[in-house]
Design a protein around this nucleic acid. Structure first.
Lengths: 343, 343
DNA sequence: TTAAAAAATGTAAGCGCTTACATTTTAGAG
DNA sequence: CTCTAAAATGTAAGCGCTTACATTTTTTAA
């Protein structure tokens, strides 16, 4: 072995310094701002780094430099393709800027989310990405107190002031609902995720109401069934809708997964889509095109959102106060699951 | 504000100590091993922690305690539901043990993976999860030098000695291939992911060959097309297979996504599945049941694998050397995409 | 009541790095 | 060749926490 000061395998800055016959300061500079070091010295130091297989100690670095180059994200679940995709892009962009991603998931549970946020803050995250606006005020207070820059994604609400990157869930759903209404549907039902602490779902439901109001229909006519995320739950919700409100001719789901469940339930019940009932989704993930029939849905640029989120967060960390909030466009994708209302 | 020693918002251990009128050691003990502190003192300290909104500084903690309670995973991509699911379970279990997950993705690129591993090691990961055995020896050497416990997932190969949790890709595929052969198929083709640095794909292909050999068929008869991951690429690969080897009656894909692509290509080409050609997948993710026709595939317990991986890694970190490697069972799921060979 | 053991708490030495400031070396100008 | 400014390097003081060891307090037992 080499002449490490202390003989536990992992070499330290001091070992490198010794090896290269310079001070620790010089080694540190070689690694962090090489232009401030003489050419020959640098080469000598770099060789020592190589020889010893030196890698900086993270804790020490974080402590001394007061930052971890680590960014955290708390998402509902990675099993939702929507978040997996966004997170993937987020991580890629982060990586490009030398940042690493810390991940936790809340399983759509507000308390769990709070725990996770605290845990990630404790892990020294320089910044944090959160999904949607809805959460207890003390989380925001905590983050403020800890001085951890925070960015909201997946939601964009002109009335909110927090930095965010996302799309207008309400407006997007309104547009889709208009299309549905345009197909002659008068009895619309909505299968939603729980709206209590999920502004995205809530806004989407409201979006449908907006569209109904716009055509002079009472928005309280909208039948809404709330259910947790999943194909099976979507199936059950669809059955419930059709049982309790048999006149329904269009079932608008707040995401594609629930919609696929609805499609499946319809098939089992012998209900033809779109001849008897139309079904719509939201997100435009892969299964939307794979479903039978292919799903009419709202296309959301998940990857772009993830990428932008990373960029924005990095800007915020740097102190560039520009572009504090960003609205992304969505787009209606009309496919076979939407058809004219039966008469 | 409170009487922080130094007046930059974030309180330190010393501030808490001051506030509670104890030493920093006592505060530290309150937080890390409360049973070693008197009841009254603890309450006083905890109150101070609350009042000040204290959260430990990560870098300092990591430096002093020589561990970060952080575990890293490098996966090919989160957009593959297979990994998203496993990673989700992995993270959940980690969380249960107070560990946090650091994530990076390699996009199935060996060089990128190496970079990521180094980056995560530099971020102070206490342990690391890697997918599959295949990678440059210097990555393993680096990890060993850094003394970072490493666990391999998604592969279990009796001939390998590294700690791993996974399933026998080869044996599982052999079993599926036997079923295919049992349906009378003599001209089998395989659509594979690139096998160069992916032992999982390679083993699956070999698994088919094994089954062919077992029935006395020359394994070199197997037509193999390699293509990157994706539905579209699966489509193209299927076209290529059917063009170059039109006698093919069964196309075995090394994962469900490629298989769904194959199914789609078949439909576009007017080839009936399974009447003209049978198609199989691997993984049994959601789209396998959603596909038309539903896909015959190998069910892999992704969630369980993620959970076990977390448990094993934690054990390894603790120094419990038990259960160094774990084989999980897979199961063939026969669905409509597999039928008897046309005569 | 008192000595010994056990429990609670305090003291202070690092952990390995960054960086302000001090010092030395080098380069350039006269 | 000398003087000065700039570049390169070194010195050493923390960063905020954990923990071995020392000290004090409480409990237990005789």
């Amino acid at each position: 072995m080499t002449n490490n000061t202390k003989d536990n395998g992992v070499p330290t800055l001091a070992d490198v310094a010794l090896h290269a016959n310079v001070s620790t300061a010089t080694v540190s500079r070689c690694l962090n701002s090489p232009e401030r070091v003489g050419e020959k010295t640098r080469q000598r130091v770099m060789k020592a780094v190589q020889d010893l297989g030196y890698a900086p100690n993270f804790g020490a670095q974080a402590l001394a430099a007061r930052q971890t180059n680590t960014i955290a994200a708390v998402i509902p679940t990675m099993e939702n393709a929507v978040f997996a995709r966004g997170l993937q892009a987020f991580q890629e962009e982060l990586g490009r800027h030398g940042k690493t991603l810390l991940v936790a998931s809340s399983a759509y549970d507000a308390d769990l989310e709070e725990q996770q946020v605290r845990a990630l803050a404790a892990r020294g995250a320089d910044g944090i990405l959160l999904i949607g606006y809805d959460r207890a005020p003390d989380i925001y207070a905590f983050l403020a107190k800890q001085q951890i820059p925070t960015l909201i994604a997946w939601s964009f609400n002109p009335e909110e002031t927090r930095p965010s990157v996302g799309f207008n869930n309400r407006a997007a759903m309104t547009e889709l609902a208009r299309q549905v209404i345009g197909h002659g549907h008068k009895h619309i039902a909505c299968v939603s995720a729980p709206t209590a602490s999920n502004d995205r779902a809530r806004e989407r439901v409201e979006g449908i109401r907006d569209a109904m109001s716009q055509v002079g229909q009472s928005s309280s006519d909208l039948v809404v069934v709330e259910t947790p995320y999943g194909i099976e739950t979507g199936e059950r919700a669809f059955r419930q809708v059709m049982t309790e409100s048999p006149r329904t001719t269009a079932v608008m789901c707040v995401n594609d997964v629930l919609a696929v469940g609805a499609l499946r339930a319809a098939r089992e019940m012998g209900i033809k889509v779109p001849d008897d009932v139309s079904v719509t989704g939201f997100d435009d993930i892969e299964i939307a095109t794979l479903a039978e029939p292919p799903l009419t849905t709202v296309h959301v640029p998940h990857r772009e959102m993830g990428r932008c989120a990373a960029d924005m967060l990095i800007h915020i960390l740097r102190g560039d106060q520009d572009g504090h909030t960003l609205e992304l466009a969505t787009e209606i994708r009309v496919r076979q699951s939407l058809g004219p209302a039966p008469n």
